[in-house]
Write a protein that binds this DNA or RNA. Structure first.
Length: 301
DNA sequence: AACGGGCTCAACCGCTGGGAA
DNA sequence: TTTCCCAGCGGTTGAGCCCGT
């Protein structure tokens, strides 16, 4: 008996999301929060399946997403993590705040793979390509032995589920138990969290730096500052959003940054200077705002 | 200007695991 | 224990963009 499809696909829209659909989804999530995704399209008035809505939100519309290319530091982190846990993109993404597994997976396949190959490193094994061939036979033998051992003594801790088989070789920095892997996860997370942003290699070359004083017109949270008309425009997305009286904005300094053509909104900055909401229109519809979260965070510090 | 090949990345597909009934 | 639903995951696809000819 097969699994039921995630939704009734008849009449469901597929393909790229339109700005209108994005608006509906953002509006719904901001108003109601994330609930049962299956119910979202119906409640939000979308002809999409719940799964599509969830993916669109998590991979593109989510407020805490960073945009733009991965920095050198992030890239190195991805490489390090990949060498230890393989293609577990969501796990890797969890170490890079604001990055999605899809984004990292794409970046790996389009950039890092080539980069490593250019450097003479096998992206699968993270070993020098020249030595890979020599080791492949040894690996094969070792894997055969491991398979025999597994048949004789089943693993109580399924380390094979955590670690890439290629990382089981002694010369790689591999932990031998799940506990150690988890501890390593924690260590790496905390390392990333506490990294000095000035030394982190964040790439600020990709976008022109804008000093905060050049772009900010901070205003204290107040009833008047939550007026849609303060920032809205008849030809922009935010103006059309049915955000309930901006009550959800009451904690923010209501900083909204507009594209030159006022066709998109990018950031809302709260009192702590955190970016809370970012809207990035489809790349073929309007030029992307030249300010991204990196730049902004960097500017604040 | 037109064409074609390569590249990028958003979106989709199918599968898995967890949890509820 | 079994069945079903749901969210999440990783692999794959294809439309649109870019760039060289």
């Amino acid at each position: 008996m097969g699994r039921q499809p995630c939704c009734d696909k008849v009449g469901m829209k597929k393909g790229p999301w339109t700005a209108e659909e994005d608006k509906k989804l953002i509006n719904f999530i901001l108003t109601n929060g994330q609930c049962c995704w299956r119910a979202v399209p119906k409640l939000a008035g979308l002809l999409r399946c719940g799964k599509s809505c969830r993916l669109r939100w998590t991979n593109y519309l989510r407020p805490d997403l960073k945009r733009g290319l991965l920095s050198e530091h992030e890239e190195q982190l991805v490489i390090d993590l990949h060498s230890q846990i393989g293609n577990r993109w969501s796990k890797i993404a969890s170490h890079l705040p604001g990055r999605t597994d899809n984004e990292i997976k794409n970046h790996w396949n389009t950039h890092i793979k080539k980069k490593l190959k250019k450097m003479g490193i096998d992206p699968l094994t993270h070993k020098l390509l020249s030595t890979t061939d020599q080791q492949s036979q040894q690996q094969q033998k070792q894997q055969e032995q491991e398979q025999k051992q597994q048949l004789q003594t089943p693993l109580t801790n399924d380390i094979s589920d955590i670690l890439d088989p290629n990382d089981k070789e002694p010369e790689t920095p591999v932990q031998s138990t799940i506990t150690e892997v988890k501890e390593e996860d924690k260590r790496m997370t905390s390392t990333f969290d506490t990294v000095d942003i000035m030394d982190s290699g964040f790439c600020i070359d990709d976008v022109p730096l804008i000093e905060p004083h050049e772009i900010l017109a901070p205003c204290a949270p107040s009833a008047s500052s939550s007026s849609r008309n303060s920032y809205g425009s008849s030809n922009n997305i935010l103006g059309d959003l049915e955000i309930p009286d901006f009550e959800w904005l009451s904690d923010y300094n209501n900083m909204i940054l507009w594209d030159d053509d006022l066709s998109s909104w990018d950031l809302l900055i709260n009192d702590d200077g955190d970016s809370q909401l970012a809207y990035d229109p489809p790349r073929n519809q309007c030029p992307r705002m030249v300010l991204d979260q990196y730049t902004w965070t960097y500017g604040l510090i």
